[in-house]
Design a binder for these strands. Structure first.
Length: 445
RNA sequence: GUGGCUGUAGUUCAGUUGGUUAGAACGUCGGAUUGUGAUUCCGAAGGUCACGGGUUCGAAUCCCGUCAGCCACCCCA
């Protein structure tokens, strides 16, 4: 034992203590229930894939960030860096059994070997949902609704879903004769929110090789302001004559009308022509979600429509639309906003081990309360009551059930509200119905 | 991957121009209080000063490397 191994974790990888894990699980549960409420079904895929599956896309950037190695059988493998590529492979393999349209959600860890920053890690969780196999704009509209419901369910008031359509931009680029360099242009445009017009125009000129006039037209389009109908009206002349652009415009207009009809508060959703998304596989709707109080953290939920998800893996034509919630970035944001409740207990009720000779009575009482669907933690040692209550207080329990030899002899139990300190004595007989009723009363209040 | 800042008990931080035994608060554990939790009092545990090397009579302090964290770029959730 002379030399111990230093306990440590890799850069960008983290341990989760109960205090961090409890809100994390809550967020996952919330996302899951919103996705399910729209009929999305869960799937899972392996963390490790054949390298060729992951590098199929071939972009340099993802290639650099990919965790890759040879497995014990000498196969070239890699850890998934998002959930979309695995979905493409998954769909190519199983779409026959699944049928179309296929709606799935996938909540899982992904890995990227990039440099860390607040809210950005090398192992992080994504909560994706996608609808594949349909080109209907309804699916795009539903995507926005899901994102809206998701953030509302999490408890945010001040969030904004920015929506755009790639066809709008592509239409303009066609008109300008820049269609071939669209990826470079879009990537530059993606920096508008952060860097401003100067940065964008410089990158457009130097990287994308756009002329002064082209830069001016692109920026004019991207910096349109006003409410949704105003933006749509201003876009119309800019895109006139471009089939692609007009189609994009129509899709946007349809979406605006549909979302208005569902009664989404207007401040939470807006056309933002500057949203481009760096990823080049998006072809139609693109979406980003920002927290008004924390614009610096960037988009916490992004997504869009892609024409052919699985073309690398199958002949089957599989269009899709979906978005991804960045769970860890969102948790970092919520922590910064003080929006996370601090508890490190999962059961609401605490049962002190008070009278050492009565362990079985406590276990029976706890079992009765649990049968009613209420979690109970029984303290493992018959320590001083004060100590046990201190423990309960620190963990954030809401109720303590206090029963010493006297109460047990009388068939009674104190139900103590730990928030107020009030305590009522009720009968513990009849499988604890009175105890359970009192607990429910306190929890309900 | 590039550049900048940082690293001292579980946590937040002191620590003089390099000087001998590295401190505090909070937290933890025990006691005052063999039946009631954020109060009070007493006591205890807890540090290879991130790790490794160098300079020096002497290093938490100066230098180099590694690791990690934060920030910017890049990219993105």
């Amino acid at each position: 034992m002379s030399e111990r191994i230093q306990p440590r974790t890799l850069k960008g990888f983290r341990d989760y203590l109960p205090e961090a894990m409890i809100p994390r699980e809550w967020l996952i549960d919330t996302a899951r229930s919103v996705y399910r409420s729209y009929g999305f079904s869960p799937i899972d895929t392996p963390a490790l894939e054949y390298l060729e599956i992951l590098t199929g896309k071939g972009s340099e950037e993802t290639d650099k960030q990919l965790y890759r190695f040879q497995d014990h059988g000498g196969r070239d493998v890699g850890l998934r860096f998002d959930l979309t590529i695995p979905l493409a492979r998954f769909a190519a393999q199983h779409i026959q059994e699944l049928g179309i349209p296929f709606k799935r959600y996938h909540i899982a860890n992904v890995w990227r070997g990039e440099n860390t920053q607040r809210g950005r890690y090398r192992e992080f969780m994504q909560c994706d949902f996608d609808t594949i196999g349909t080109e209907s704009n309804s699916a795009d509209i539903e995507m926005v609704l899901v994102v809206h419901d998701l953030f509302a369910a999490i408890g945010f008031e001040d969030f904004q879903i920015h929506v755009n359509n790639r066809r709008v931009l592509n239409g303009l680029l066609e008109k300008l004769g820049l269609a071939e360099r669209s990826t470079l242009v879009l990537r530059a445009l993606d920096k508008l929110a952060k860097g401003g017009a100067k940065v964008v125009s410089q990158e457009l000129t130097t990287v994308a090789g756009a002329s002064e006039g082209q830069v001016r037209d692109i920026l004019q389009l991207a910096t349109l302001r006003g409410d949704n109908s105003q933006v749509l009206a201003q876009l119309t002349p800019l895109l006139a004559g471009s089939e692609t652009g007009e189609r994009g415009l129509n899709e946007l207009a349809e979406m605006v009308a549909a979302l208005d009809a569902t009664g989404i508060p207007s401040g939470r959703f807006g056309i933002d022509v500057s949203i481009a998304r760096g990823l080049d596989y998006y072809t139609g709707t693109v979406l980003e979600t920002f927290l008004e109080k924390l614009p610096g953290i960037g988009s916490v939920c992004s997504g869009g429509r892609y024409d052919n998800l699985a073309e690398l893996y199958t002949k089957e034509h599989l269009p899709g639309v979906g978005a991804s919630l960045g769970l860890d970035r969102l948790l970092a944001a919520m922590e910064e906003l003080g929006q996370l409740k601090k508890t490190s207990t999962t059961a609401p009720v605490f049962l002190p081990f008070f009278a050492a000779a009565h362990r079985d009575d406590y276990l029976r009482l706890a079992a009765n309360v649990r049968r009613a669907g209420i979690g109970v933690e029984f303290f493992p040692e018959a320590k001083k009551l004060g100590k046990q209550l201190q423990y309960a207080d620190k963990r954030g329990f809401r109720i303590a059930l206090i029963a010493g030899a006297d109460e047990l002899a009388a068939g009674q139990c104190q139900v103590k509200n730990l928030a107020t300190g009030e305590s009522t004595t009720v009968s513990a007989a009849e499988d604890g119905t009175a105890v359970i009723a009192e607990i429910r009363r306190i929890l309900g209040a």
